[in-house]
Design a protein around this nucleic acid. Structure first.
Length: 509
RNA sequence: GCCGGCGUAGCUCAGCUUGGUUAGAGCAGCGGUCUUUUAAACCGAUGGUCCAGGGUUCGAAUCCCUGCGCCGGCACCA
């Protein structure tokens, strides 16, 4: 052990690393250039597999393709004066057949000194071995980079979830299904952009650093700007800036970007997460429900090739139209055949009735919400109905009390023209007709400010600058946010948000 | 934040219930045989801070306590 010279945070060199350094030394000694700047590829490994994967041995003999490609060595099977490498580009694997009498002694010495994880380039003929494996018969083998540390095991891969998150590069190197998750994630974002761009939405970027953290009820992260000596917050939502842009006349606008919320971490929550938010002038909530169905159907069929996708033991059917339930109907339905007795519409009409129902169905600490009908109803919904909404379901008629930025419903001001989309028991989207009355908005901010003064750190601060923007006139507008991480979870059948975020937040080691 | 589970070789895992030689296996690595193998095969020799610290005991990977990390659930939230 080399001990004292090592940086304390760096794992010490053990015998396995020494062996690999020795192999590198021998490669250098054999005259191999270990500092190449580039390597010319005629195709990637997955490209070669895609192009020739369907070709028979006879096809390849008749018209022998010669290719050059490169990747990471993931397996080596020696046969004395010949041998096989499995090369990976993270998406596909390709076998390389190396014969000493073909590549010559110097290159074969390189072959002998390769370790799993090394990067090499290969140039040669595509053929099939007698067991039918698509392979490249190396004419030349080129060293590209050394892997000085041992890679996780070839057969079981890397399973330790902590290592998969902390050292995602290892996960990606050996677990192709992990790479596929992030390919899918990118395809989802691409499909959403294409959908919105085609309909005339303008993609924008608004500030991540806010002097007032608004647009959602959440605790923000604090930071500080030195030159301006300014306390700033990482944004919890882009909402108020996007609506300022609608005031400015951008009738259709969207942003796909990160939000930051200083709250708990769970399988569905990461402190930074990605949201699509979009706004459309002259539209109401119901228009966005229809648009959302259309968008998700298009995104899903593009990404999955099918409108039915697997989720846990079952299937999610993304075929529109989606179910639609008011929050109160969802609560009634969920409690209808429950021995504790259905929560009726009459019960939900009064704070006392809601409190009784909350107690009856075991809402956690219901006294927190005493006298607050909206919060009681929402808590009741979350307790009895949320987890049961597996197939895509729009929930609508939200209490105005918990919707400080939404417009009141025309028929009943106690409720807002707001909806949320639930899939697999998770909230995927949240949309509403935007409050565009500056007086009402000012009043809602005042209510939130009171709430905040009473210690609710999630309540909003009064945003005078935003109220001023509304005074210049926000046309009737509907807006919506869709959680990209959760959508990715659904389409990859991953049950933790950390599996769809490349580097989820963990405590530093 | 609370409750529960887990932490053994580079990786994947046994062993812990019921304390008892020097802690095991597979893969990887090392030395050898092998020119169409594919979890290649075969022969040989290796590799350990049993998460950390403390306690109980003649004796602790194993039992107890504390701490750290991760996972799951709850709370908060999207």
């Amino acid at each position: 052990m080399s001990g004292a010279q090592e940086e304390p945070t760096h794992p010490p060199e053990d015998e396995l690393v020494r062996n690999r350094r020795e192999n590198l030394r021998r490669i250098v000694e054999s005259g191999c250039d270990t500092h190449l700047y580039k390597y010319p590829l005629s195709a990637t490994i997955s490209g070669v597999v895609a192009e020739h994967g369907g070709s028979s041995s006879e096809d390849l003999q008749r018209d022998t393709p010669v290719i050059s490609t490169a990747g990471r060595v993931l397996a080596q099977r020696n046969q004395g004066k010949a041998g096989f490498l499995d090369l990976s580009d993270g998406r596909a694997r390709l076998q390389v057949y190396v014969r000493r009498d073909v590549v010559g002694e110097p290159a074969f010495e390189l072959y002998r000194r390769l370790d799993l994880g090394d990067w090499v380039g290969v140039e040669g003929e595509v053929f099939r071995t007698k067991t039918g494996e698509l392979s490249v018969k190396a004419r030349t083998l080129t060293f590209l980079a050394k892997c000085l540390r041992p890679l996780p095991e070839k057969w079981h891969g890397l399973k330790d979830v902590e290592l998969r998150y902390r050292q995602r590069y290892l996960d990606l190197a050996v677990n192709p299904e992990s790479r596929a998750v992030f390919e899918t994630r990118a395809a989802i974002v691409r499909a959403i952009r294409r959908f919105l761009d085609a309909r005339g939405y303008l993609e924008v970027e608004t500030p991540m650093m806010h002097s007032i953290a608004g647009g959602a009820l959440a605790r923000p992260f604090k930071t500080h700007h030195n030159a301006l000596d300014l306390e700033l917050y990482l944004r919890v939502a882009p909402e108020l800036y996007l609506k300022r842009l609608v005031v400015g006349g951008i009738e259709k606008v969207y942003e796909i970007n990160r939000n930051f919320r200083n709250e708990g971490i769970s399988t569905q929550h990461n402190p930074e997460f990605t949201m699509l938010e979009f706004y459309q002038a002259y539209a109401e909530g119901a228009d966005l429900m229809r648009l959302t169905e259309e968008m998700l159907a298009e995104v899903v069929s593009e990404v999955a090739g099918n409108l039915k996708t697997p989720w846990k033991e079952g299937t999610i059917d993304w075929t529109p139209p989606y179910h639609r339930r008011t929050m109160r109907v969802a609560v009634s339905e969920a409690t209808r055949s429950d021995g504790r007795g259905e929560v009726t519409r009459e019960e939900m009409a009064s704070a006392d009735g809601l409190m009784a129902a909350a107690v009856r169905f075991g809402v956690d600490r219901p006294e927190r919400f005493r006298g607050q009908k909206g919060k009681l109803l929402a808590a009741l919904f979350e307790t009895v109905a949320e987890a049961g909404l597996v197939q895509p379901t729009f929930l609508y008629e939200f209490p105005t009390e918990i919707s400080p930025l939404s417009r009141r419903s025309a028929s009943d001001p106690e409720f807002a023209d707001r909806f949320e989309l639930y899939i697999a028991g998770m909230e995927i989207a949240n949309g509403f007709s935007e409050l565009n009355d500056p007086e009402d908005q000012a009043e809602r901010f005042r209510t939130q400010a009171q709430d905040r003064a009473q210690g609710n750190l999630e309540a909003a601060e009064y945003d005078a600058d935003y109220v001023e923007a509304l005074e210049y006139g926000l046309p009737p507008t509907a807006g919506e946010g869709i959680g990209i991480d959760r959508l990715t979870m659904l389409l990859t059948d991953r049950h933790s948000i950390r599996d769809v975020i490349l580097f989820p937040l963990l405590r530093p080691r």
